[in-house]
Amino acid sequence: MNRPSPAGLLVALAFGIVFVVEGRTVLGMLGFELPLSVYFPVAGLLLVAMFVGLLLLPKTNSKQVAGT
């Protein structure tokens, strides 16, 4: 897997934030209600870690330009 383009990273970030926000709702539905002060630091750190991981990936070959 190669590193997504800046556009791909932006789209991924937007979806990441959505999943973090809605993740708490889904957990609540399933009966795990976490306090804000616990959930958001943990989820935020996970998001940052994922992002750093994406940035560590090798850059896309010059061939594939479009999309992610």
Partner: peptide, 12 residues
């Protein structure tokens, strides 16, 4: 889904 032109605002 990764091959869609996500870099184009009109598409995205």
């Amino acid at each position: 889904l990764r091959s869609l032109p996500w870099n184009k605002p009109a598409f995205t």
